[in-house]
Amino acid sequence: MAHADWSDPTPAAGWTIAHQIAHLAAADTNVLIAVRTPEAFDAVLKRTEAAGSRHADLEAAAGAAKPRSVLLDEWRSGRAEVAAALRDLPTEHGFPWYGSQLTATLMAPLRLMEVWAHGQDVFDAVCAARRPTDRLRQIATLGVIGRELSFHAAELPLTTEPFRVELAGSDGRTWTWGPADAEQRVEGGALDFCLRVTRRRYPAETDLTAVGGDAQAWLDNARVFL
């Protein structure tokens, strides 16, 4: 990214590389508000509601208009502050977030997931490959946990049938979730699963396979965020 033109477009419609970085920086700012001054987070929610569906675009555009060096410094310092703030929190201490209460235990992998997903947009923009690491397991776990969200977002009934997920991990081992005898199954590479649940690839662009109608419906609609 050091040699990339931050005005280059990314796969997200209307977003340049600068928009992607600005979005991450703004999200880190909001995390710090929620953790440090939770009583002030209501103002963040009100600004989000007032802007409606254009909120993310407007916020990213405002950050993208800053000089590249300023934006990069803001993002890097914000990331460091978020990491420190989450480390200092008691494990189960709750703080407000969008429509819920979160803990550091959940926010840490959520921030990892978002940075990785938007980072993928930047990698795609500059046509560069990235090396998968074992940290993908945290994103894959969010993807498995997000099955209920996926069905809800697609307005599909949530089945009570158990699911099995088997993924080829970057460490050479098979990562598994769910009972081994479950009839609903999703299998494939961990990288492709993470790309799918973060909505960075369509199912046909991955090596993922589904066994069972509900498993296929999940794969078709998989997501970890609304």
Rank of each mutant, 00 (worst) to 15 (best):
A117M: 11
W6Q: 02
R196S: 00
W218P: 00
I21R: 15
R135G: 14
A190T: 13
D5Q: 13
A129P: 07
G212A: 06
A222R: 00
Q184W: 03
A51Q: 14
P203K: 08
D57M: 05
A80G: 12
A125F: 03
G78A: 10
L32W: 07
I17M: 06
H3A: 11
E74S: 04
V186G: 00
E49Q: 12
P203Y: 09
A18I: 10
F225D: 02
R147G: 09
L219P: 00
M1I: 07
A128V: 11
G63F: 09
F41Q: 08
H152Y: 01
E39M: 03
G14I: 09
S7M: 04
Q120L: 14
E74C: 10
T160P: 08
T37I: 08
A64H: 12
D121K: 05
K46V: 09
R47G: 06
R36C: 02
A18T: 03
L24K: 07
W15I: 09
A51P: 10
R135E: 15
A104F: 07
E114P: 09
A2S: 15
I21C: 13
A154Q: 02
A125R: 05
R164H: 15
I17L: 13
S150W: 03
T141H: 15
T141D: 15
A34L: 08
I33L: 12
R196V: 00
W116C: 01
V82W: 01
G172L: 14
S170Q: 12
R199Q: 11
P11H: 08
T48C: 01
T48N: 05
D8V: 09
E74H: 08
A12W: 01
A12L: 13
R137F: 14
L110P: 10
G52M: 04
I17V: 15
G188A: 03
P179H: 03
E59N: 12
R201P: 00
R47H: 13
H93C: 01
P67N: 05
V70G: 07
M113W: 00
R68W: 05
P203H: 05
V197P: 10
D171E: 14
A22D: 04
H152G: 07
T91P: 00
T37P: 06
A2Q: 12
L106I: 14
G212F: 05
A215Q: 01
P9M: 11
A26E: 07
A83W: 01
G14M: 06
A34F: 07
D134C: 07
D42T: 01
A56F: 11
W177H: 10
D73E: 15
D88K: 00
G143W: 06
T29L: 11
W116D: 02
V44D: 03
H3N: 12
Q216W: 02
R47D: 12
Q138I: 02
T91I: 04
W75P: 01
P179N: 02
N221P: 00
F193K: 09
R223S: 01
L86I: 11
V115S: 13
D28R: 07
D207A: 08
A190N: 11
D121N: 14
M1K: 13
I33W: 05
C194V: 13
L167H: 12
I139Q: 07
V82K: 02
N221A: 10
G172F: 10
V115T: 13
V44E: 06
R164M: 14
R173S: 15
V115A: 13
A128S: 13
T103L: 00
L72C: 03
A65R: 15
R130E: 12
A26Q: 06
F95Y: 04
E183Y: 02
A18Y: 09
E148N: 11
L112M: 10
R137I: 08
L142D: 04
